[in-house]
């Protein structure tokens, strides 16, 4: 096939039918409070890791919902499990347990290399 000097980039569209929901289902099953997140950002605002790095626990939640696992393994290790996010969450989500479940789930479902 003839090679052009560019590659078509991957579509940025979220294709709902293609979402891998294994991890989100696992988390919600074990920490039902997770499904009540309203994306207020209090957790990220209070998180020391978020103030210094690209780590963003609220966005991580969104990525898991979309089944986007690239970077998650690497990102999740920046969490120090300090629990500050848990103290501010207005929906009373046990965010720390969510992080633990993400770590476990990534391995269980073989979602990372």
């Amino acid at each position: 096939m003839k090679q052009f000097g560019f590659a078509t980039s991957k579509s940025r569209t979220i294709e709902y039918e293609k979402i891998n929901s294994a991890l989100i289902s696992y988390i919600v099953e074990n920490e039902p409070s997770f499904s009540s997140c309203m994306s207020c950002g209090s957790c990220t605002a209070t998180c020391s890791a978020a103030n210094l790095t690209f780590f963003n626990i609220r966005r991580l939640n969104m990525q898991i919902r979309l089944g986007e696992f690239e970077n998650i393994r690497q990102e999740i290790d920046k969490c120090m499990l300090c629990g500050k996010c848990l103290l501010v969450c207005p929906r009373g989500i046990n965010t720390r347990n969510v992080i633990m479940l993400i770590k476990k789930g990534l391995v269980t479902f073989n979602l990372v290399e």
């Binding site: 994306s39 207020c40 950002g41 209090s42 957790c43 990220t44 605002a45 998180c47 978020a50 103030n51 963003n56 609220r58 966005r59």
Partner: peptide
């Protein structure tokens, strides 16, 4: 967090 830009 300015959630729309995803930054503290």
């Amino acid at each position: 967090e300015d959630t729309l830009s995803a930054r503290p």
